[in-house]
Design a protein around this nucleic acid. Structure first.
Lengths: 121, 121
DNA sequence: GCTTGACGACTACAGCTGTAATCGATAGCA
DNA sequence: TGCTATCGATTACAGCTGTAGTCGTCAAGC
């Protein structure tokens, strides 16, 4: 059962995937670009705890937060949802789409060629 | 400005991308698997009209609905959002992820190899 | 010791989403 | 011509999301 993480919640997760454990204040500080009130950050942390994708340990009177799911796990779930929703559950058409949409540079293609070669070996 | 389409709304769009124009009743009939009340289908159609992704023409006392955006356009936008959100805006890491996550079968890899070869030519 | 500031818990509220119900007009059948 | 089934328009309502504000407590400085 892959827990859904919303857009704003994801920003918080990214901070903690990059560095953990952190206090709520630390997280807020590292979300400078978003310019949220620290109240808002607290709300996000609370919701993420409720969803089970964050853990917290007591540190005196406050909490230290850290991810309870790995980024790769979340990413995999999200990609799978996209593939299921829009490409009939098959990855190959998505790759074809990326290629056709000019989403792949020459360098990407070279890299991809090497990757394919390796996987087929 | 790519209009967001929710999960349930997408089901309605898929019906109309597959065959249009259709009446509300037709759409409801083709959503059998979802088993929605036709009220619900009407709500979806109304919201999709408001979002500008559907058009309707009058047909006597009722409407005939058809898409105002192509499926490929919507898919491209959605894929781009995913790539931006989780892969730093670069498509190659997504492809690598798909490969590593065993999302690609042997047949997919063969197909992909041919595709890469063609694109690099 | 008393005050103030930090912290977590709880509450708020509007917009979106899923899932409908109700209302008013009308078209077709009896 | 009057009743009923149908259609679109409007309204409902709970849960999620973005974005906070309020409250009670406790710790640290004065």
């Amino acid at each position: 059962m892959p827990e859904r993480i919303s857009e704003a919640e994801l920003a918080v997760m990214e901070v903690l995937w990059a560095d953990a454990p952190l206090t709520a204040a630390d997280v807020a500080a590292r979300l400078g670009a978003r310019d949220w009130s620290d109240r808002t950050v607290k709300t996000m942390l609370g919701r993420l705890l409720a969803k089970g994708v964050l853990r917290h340990d007591e540190d005196g009177r406050r909490y230290l937060y850290r991810p309870a799911v790995e980024r790769a796990t979340y990413v995999a779930g999200d990609v799978r949802r996209l593939v299921d929703r829009l490409f009939g559950g098959r990855a190959a058409p998505l790759v074809a789409h990326l290629a056709e949409a000019n989403g792949l540079s020459d360098a990407d293609l070279a890299e991809l060629e090497a990757l394919v070669k390796e996987l087929r070996a």
